[in-house]
């Protein structure tokens, strides 16, 4: 709720399909905030777009998937193979390079191929790639459909992995702090509610699958429960050490042309302790039948 509205502000979502359009929409002020990949946010700022990372979308929730019956059993077995990544600006790309370094493999020992995430499972099934690394629910898709096997969850190889971050326009941060705070509090409260119980997660999978993601609720239930810490929605404050690690890797790999200081592209002033935040479910506006019809 804001000072001026008993119902709370209205947050509308808008889907984008490519990065240049996101950039234009931010510059034209058509959107106030966007969830994008962490290295993309750094590059946006480096390109002079006045935005800041204010919060994270989630932690973990990415997996490296290979064919169910393939002879790939550890990272070293990926040598000479083709692995799909969502984008060169994805943290998944940086993770692959980090792993190659840790395993003592040359940078070109795995062919990394950019593919849109929904195409990852079908490409694996068709045999045009040997594995893929992507955010959920596309990682779980091959597993649930019986032709894929998770080689690694990011939680096991890069704990507290960051994929998606919330960037907000600088002018909103300066002029409409209350509105930005309401958005970030809402994300934090929703994350806390999700991580509170499995019952909440299953309810969320049902609603999000049917009305927002248009994906089978059973797939989202799998993502949110097998294992239960596969994806987390708490610990979403942007932390300097985490981002410095991503930024340094991005420079090393050549995704970013030069280093950029955390303070230049991040603003953690909206982060509140989770103990102060809770949804008051009885005060929330209930969606009308027309709202739900409109989403179908």
């Amino acid at each position: 709720m804001t000072e001026h509205s008993e119902e709370g502000s209205l947050f509308r979502s808008q889907k984008f399909t490519d990065w240049p359009t996101v950039k234009e929409a931010l510059i034209a002020k058509e959107v106030g905030a966007v969830f994008i990949l962490a290295p993309m946010a750094m590059q946006l700022r480096a390109d002079g777009v006045k935005v800041k990372v204010c919060y994270l979308g989630h932690r973990d929730g990415t997996a490296l998937v290979v064919g169910k019956d393939s002879d790939i059993h550890d990272f070293g077995d990926l040598k000479g193979k083709i692995v799909a990544i969502p984008s060169r600006f994805a943290n998944q790309n940086l993770l692959m390079h980090k792993m190659m370094k840790e395993w003592g493999m040359p940078d070109d020992s795995i062919e990394l191929r950019e593919l849109p995430p929904p195409e990852h499972p079908t490409a694996l099934l068709a045999g045009s790639i040997d594995g893929y690394i992507v955010g959920e629910p596309f990682a779980a898709k091959a597993e649930v459909d019986g032709f894929g096997r998770v080689l690694y969850h990011t939680k096991d190889i890069w704990p507290e992995f960051i994929s998606c971050v919330l960037v907000v326009r600088d002018d909103l941060i300066e002029e409409q702090r209350e509105l930005v705070q309401e958005l970030i509090d809402g994300i934090a409260k929703s994350g806390k509610w999700l991580d509170e119980s499995q019952e909440h997660r299953m309810d969320a999978a049902e609603v999000a699958g049917k009305y927002y993601y248009f994906q089978p609720p059973a797939l989202l239930k799998h993502v949110l429960s097998k294992p239960v810490d596969r994806v987390k929605y708490t610990n979403l404050a942007p932390l300097k050490d985490d981002f410095d690690e991503i930024m340094n890797l991005a420079v090393e790999v050549g995704v970013l042309s030069k280093p950029i200081a955390f303070e230049e592209y991040a603003d953690d002033s909206f982060v509140k302790p989770l103990a102060e935040l809770d949804w008051h479910m009885d005060e929330l506006a209930k969606p009308t039948a027309a709202d739900m019809e409109g989403k179908q």
Partner: peptide, 15 residues
Amino acid sequence: GKERDELVVGFLPVT
């Protein structure tokens, strides 16, 4: 207080 404040939040489903 006559209208609700509104903010459009974009998302890029690329992971």
